[in-house]
Write a protein that binds this DNA or RNA. Structure first.
Lengths: 340, 340
DNA sequence: AGATAATAATAAAACGTTTTCATTTGTTTT
DNA sequence: AAAACAAATGAAAACGTTTTATTATTATCT
């Protein structure tokens, strides 16, 4: 059907091995031979069959990007776009493709991975969003297959063996809440993401730790799971507001959740920051566009992707990238918090 | 290195053909043979080498999802996440993988495609976001390779041959602007996306057409390219506001751009909708969370992805999907527009 | 000029499957 | 019980490359 290496060889009057050499720009080729082959390739519009190349010993030029669907839902927001896009940028430089896999369950994900590894379909993986998925991580480690996690691996023993790129969610959240405490807030609410994600847990832990450090009690009536959608966060906030004590400030573990909080507060006739202060996390573009602009923690999402990809390619190419990369963040003070 | 079909055959005491038959659940297999092979597969933890399967005549179970990087930038917003995720959902049902390709230039994109096709790496493509990229579309048509475009193909002659899934951007935008006109607005501004994208052009054309229909002149000082980022839209709006005549309403061709408009208006001390009405397009989750909630056109982004994928799989499986699918939209009236 | 070494090109094996065709085994028919 | 047929299995070719010997050619040295 489509033109193959044999056709090229015939036209150029050489053996297929020679054509192969030209394709892979091997040394020891007479310039005129190379030219002839290149000419034939051009004439026939030949592109090597990547699958066959692969079987012949080479790896497929691609990496796998894995995520569970529910976690995208959780981040049903710009996060995912930005990360994947930045990964793709690095991939283009290294001339690799991305095989995207969003499994709905972890079992399916594991199977897919094994099939990709065994099929030599990918050279490595980037796991988006940290999860508590030990099985996959353990398996990949056991196989000594290159992979990078964007996020944190909770299991200490595993964590030492895994390449990760992340921000310090615990510290950053603590800082956010400490900022509220410095503004004299004492009844601080928290709308967080489902705790099955490491990020969510870390951020909630930061919230808790800030309270501990300042010897403040936590009122768990002011802490609610903001679920997956903006609307879930809105509902969670309503629940918090129905508590007998009203919070004077709310920490949303994601700007997008912050929007849900915004809505609930507006609806309850509470002004930000006059009645309730609000602080977010991630600093999406839109954070500065709310009314008032949202105080939040800037997370370099793009860098997260770029560096993860870079680390992966280093691993693949036998270099020694740093095992753990923690990126710097910054508290961006806008106008959604005030001193009381 | 890794366990292959031979190992399984040996352990099960059958030929590799038999193993292959079991894997592909061929008929005419003694139940006990099948069981023995399955047992061996389980014991050895065997997964077929997909690349080899492929070379052996089968296609790789994957489809390509294509987009240019700049267009993601343009949609540096939830759109991309939502579409890809919905595509992935369908892919999972059909047990196919996604090969994601964001090229930065169209030449690279074309080459990638050809290499994927020739390499039998994908069975079809979904092109995200309509562009004016004739070359790729023409080439795919010429090769009679299955593909679906989310968006519109402008070239009429080509359009008749291409499978597309889209909303009627022209009509919808016209409707949005007509709505403003019905509210007695006469000086309506427009902040649009770069016109190299078909969507952008269509939406701007809708804006223009609404004016024509109502015999209203267009003041091009009120029309500005809102570029790629929210901030670009903000700058564009500032430019519009610097015009001697001030618009009484603004049509933003994307909610996200609408946020830029919001910011500029706020900054200029103009209240929405009291001083200026604002209408968006797409109806992202966050649209209802702005203050005031944004009136906009609801675009079923998720369906766009789901249907595109469904059409592609139909094509691949030799069914006859509809050539053009236009999804219904709906004007969502919130509080960002008022009658004057 | 002849021997030796370096360079260039080829032939053939290997990669791990699927698939076609041939063979064996088992079942029915007469 | 032999013949005919169906079912189950196996052997080997094919897929399109890369790669490892191997051979042919050219250059270098004495």
């Amino acid at each position: 059907m489509s033109v193959n290496i044999k056709d090229v060889a015939k036209l150029a009057n050489v053996s297929i091995s020679t054509v192969s050499r030209v394709i892979n720009n091997a040394p020891n080729l007479k310039p005129e031979t190379r030219k002839a082959v290149e000419e034939a390739i051009r004439k026939l519009n030949y592109t090597p069959n990547r699958v066959a190349q692969n079987l012949g010993g080479k790896y497929f030029n691609s990496i796998g990007v894995l995520s569970t669907r529910s976690s995208n839902q959780a981040f049903g927001n710009p996060y995912f776009s930005i990360v994947v896009q930045s990964i793709s940028q690095v991939c283009e430089r290294y001339n690799h493709d991305i095989m995207l896999n969003f499994s709905s369950d972890e079992k399916g994900e594991l199977e897919k991975c094994l099939s990709m590894i065994n099929g030599k379909v990918v050279k490595g993986f980037i796991l988006l969003s940290s999860r508590l998925n030990h099985v996959l991580v353990e398996k990949l480690l056991e196989l000594d297959f290159p992979f990078v996690v964007i996020g944190k691996v909770l299991d200490e023993e595993l964590a030492n063996k895994v390449y990760t790129v992340d921000t310090d969610n615990f510290k950053d959240s603590k800082e956010a809440v400490n900022y509220l405490i410095r503004l004299n807030h004492r009844r601080i609410g928290c709308v967080h993401a489902p705790l099955k994600y490491v990020v969510s847990k870390e951020r909630l832990d930061g919230y808790i730790e800030a309270h501990k450090e300042n010897n403040l009690p936590i009122n768990y009536a002011l802490v609610a799971d903001g679920g997956y959608t903006v609307n879930d966060a809105y509902e969670a906030t309503k629940k918090i507001l129905s508590s007998p004590v009203r919070p004077t400030a709310i920490f949303a573990t994601d700007d997008i959740k912050g929007f849900g909080v915004f809505k609930a507060l507006n609806e309850a006739g509470l002004r930000i920051p006059d009645d309730v202060s609000l602080i977010g996390h991630n600093n999406y573009d839109i954070a500065e566009l709310t009314q008032p602009p949202l105080t939040t923690i800037d997370v370099p999402i793009q860098q997260l992707g770029t560096i993860a990809a870079q680390v992966l390619f280093d691993l693949i190419n036998g270099k020694q990238p740093p095992k753990r990369t923690i990126l710097e963040t910054k508290l961006i003070i806008r106008q959604s918090c005030r001193e009381i």
